[in-house]
Amino acid sequence: MNLIVNGSEVEIVSPPLTPLLHVLRDELDITGPKAGCQQGGCGTCTVLIDGEPRRSCLTAVAAVDGASITTIEGVGQAEELSAVQAAFYKHYAAQCGFCTPGMVLAATALIERKGGPVERDEVLEALGGHYCRCTGYVKIIDAVMAASRGEVDSVDDLPVPEPGQPEVLPKGSPA
């Protein structure tokens, strides 16, 4: 079996009925999709299968042979966040962060599908199967709606991380 995971083609050696979640986490060491309830109830294992948000814990890998899989790792990087990730950052939409990968992927698919600003009710519908036990959902909804309106479209809107080297050389330092 083969999968295209975050743009790279990989060969899968796990048995065909292995849940996609475990193939990603255990065989490919991609730990963005979280093993939450593993009954399809919590949403944190969500990945995009050919662009559609799906529960990877309930998906046998053989059923998606050849498909293109996007995990949170394929959406953006720490120094180059996607619009949805940047909006989550800006709106404080994550607390413990365990639900965040699934939320971001489902929101990304929603915005992609809609192609423009999404209504509150559409967010409730698209993320309705995702549990969050920290935030009370308020800031998550704010973030998704802001991202869909293009309010936070790049990391340029965010504070610049501190460079690795200090700018001031200490007095008397051998360096």
Binding site: Q95, C134, G136, Y137
Partner: peptide
């Protein structure tokens, strides 16, 4: 963050 605690607490 205070607001985040209040909103999260509300749903809990």
């Amino acid at each position: 963050l205070v607001e985040g605690q209040i909103e999260g607490g509300a749903i809990m």
